[in-house]
Simulated assay, not measured.
Amino acid sequence: MKRYLPGVLAMAAIVVASNILVQYLFGQWLTWGAFTYPFAFLVTDVTNRLQGPRAARGVVVAGFVVGIVCSLIGSQIIGEFGPLVSFRVALGSGAAFLAAQLTDVTVFNALRRDRWWKAPLVSTLIGASLDTAIFFTTAFSLQLAWLEPGNDVSWANEMLPLLSFGPMVPLWISLACADWCVKIALAVIALAPFRAFTWRKTPRLA
């Protein structure tokens, strides 16, 4: 269990930091949390490469538990527009994290014997895309308003040009696209620290 501790601590730190930083806007479409959360995929992939998929799944579960705790705390803090974390946001966040990270582990493991960059890049691209789709749809789509009838998400469904210059879409689509773009950019950037952390390490399958 001790050998999993670095991954667990790193994942917990990223989840906590992201839950705090998501409260602060960065420009029109993003929050500061968008720049910390994608590194959760780096932690998962490094753990997978060094210690295998079982350890990676353990780190994911630890991050999920920390995320639940953060959501529970956030739901008890009342801001200007109600609880900082609504039920839909908490549900979307938890479901997206678990589905995306476990998918990342599975895809990475399937590609682990290919060239060193392929497994972390492809698994993160797929996981990040899944994460963005699940979170923003669950948290803000009008079609899922029945999940939390008392939560007014009309603000997120205001029709605006996509990222200020595209076709007219609900605001949450622009937020999701901006978030996805950051995840993809950081997936490429994270290849450098991934290589540094795993250089000359023997892949494990246990």
Rank of each mutant, 00 (worst) to 15 (best):
K183F: 03
V46D: 02
L25Y: 02
S141T: 01
S129P: 14
L186V: 15
R204A: 08
K201R: 13
P149W: 00
L21D: 07
I173D: 10
A206F: 12
W116V: 13
F81C: 07
V59L: 05
S174M: 08
A62C: 13
S174K: 04
S93R: 08
V188P: 11
F194C: 06
T31L: 12
M168N: 15
A17C: 04
R204H: 15
G7F: 02
T36L: 05
T124G: 13
G94P: 09
A10T: 05
I184D: 01
F35C: 00
G82F: 02
I189P: 09
G33W: 00
T36G: 02
A185N: 15
W116M: 12
I184H: 15
V188R: 12
G92Y: 03
V60K: 05
P170L: 02
V59P: 01
V66N: 09
V182T: 14
A145C: 12
R115P: 06
L121W: 08
P149T: 00
D45Y: 01
V85I: 12
S141W: 15
L147F: 08
E148V: 09
A62I: 09
P170V: 05
K183P: 10
V153Y: 06
S123M: 04
M11A: 02
G92Q: 04
L42G: 02
A119R: 11
W116S: 05
A40Y: 13
A100G: 04
G27E: 04
Q143H: 14
L162R: 11
R54M: 05
D131R: 08
G67I: 03
I14W: 06
F135L: 07
V69P: 11
R113M: 09
F197M: 09
F97W: 10
I173Q: 15
D179M: 06
V16I: 13
L21C: 11
K2N: 04
V89Y: 10
M11R: 00
Q28M: 05
D131K: 00
P6Y: 12
V169P: 07
D152S: 01
M11H: 00
L162W: 14
A13I: 11
V182D: 08
F97P: 03
W29R: 07
A12M: 12
G58K: 08
K2I: 06
G33L: 03
D152R: 02
L25K: 07
S71V: 06
F108S: 07
L21Q: 05
P161A: 08
A10S: 12
F165C: 07
G94T: 15
N19R: 06
L144W: 05
N19C: 02
V15R: 11
Q76F: 08
A178V: 12
P6M: 10
A96Y: 03
N151L: 10
G58P: 11
P167H: 08
V61F: 10
I173T: 15
L144H: 01
V89Q: 12
W146C: 13
T47D: 02
L175N: 13
D104F: 14
